[in-house]
Amino acid sequence: MSGIRIKRAERADAERLHEALTQLSRELGDTHVASLDDILRHGFSDSPAFFALVASRQGDGRTLGVLLASPVFSTTRGGAGLYVSDLWVAGEARGASLGERLLAAAPDHAPKSWTVTFLKLAVYQDNPRARGFYERLGFRPREGETVFDLEEPELQNLRKRS
């Protein structure tokens, strides 16, 4: 699909980024708790927790894809990486390699001082199409690794222990 521009999201893109991420949650059957204010505060502050890419069609500016990534550092890999928490491509753009293009562009949009040596992401077990997509690009499950989360109220309980 030609005529698509991929750029790093700016504050002015926050609303359409939020709309695309809301659509992703809807398509996956996920809850969507993040608000537009959350996107603005965590993505476009002095110390952002993530950066995002926006793919849009030249001419009409329609959002066709987004990628949201956060920094991660690995001592075992000796470098910085990107954790891709969200990747969405509009139905009309699927099958045209836009997801691949967004993933390929992500390291180039990381801070210049980083040496991005890897991309990391998680795939829902009940989403074999996504798993197949990532495997075709060369992503592999990290053997011997299990992802753990600590959320409220357990997070608050842990914080009280210090």
Rank of each mutant, 00 (worst) to 15 (best):
I4D: 02
I6H: 01
I6N: 01
E10S: 08
R11Y: 09
R11C: 11
R11W: 07
D13A: 03
E19R: 15
T22K: 03
T31N: 06
H32C: 09
H32N: 07
H32S: 06
H32W: 07
V33A: 10
S35V: 01
D38N: 10
H42Y: 14
S47C: 12
L53K: 06
T63M: 09
T63E: 09
L64W: 04
L67C: 08
S70K: 08
V72L: 11
T75R: 10
T76G: 11
R77G: 12
G79L: 07
A80G: 12
L82R: 05
V84I: 09
L87P: 05
W88C: 00
A90Q: 05
S97A: 14
L98V: 05
R101P: 08
R101S: 13
L102N: 04
L103V: 09
P107Q: 09
D108G: 15
P111T: 05
P111S: 06
T115L: 08
T115G: 11
L119S: 08
L121C: 04
Y124N: 11
Q125S: 14
Q125C: 13
R129L: 13
R129Y: 12
R129E: 15
A130W: 08
G138V: 01
G138Y: 03
P141Q: 02
R142L: 15
G144L: 04
E145R: 13
V147N: 10
F148T: 07
L150N: 11
E151Y: 05
P153M: 06
E154W: 12
N157D: 14
N157M: 12
L158H: 10
R159F: 09
R161Q: 15
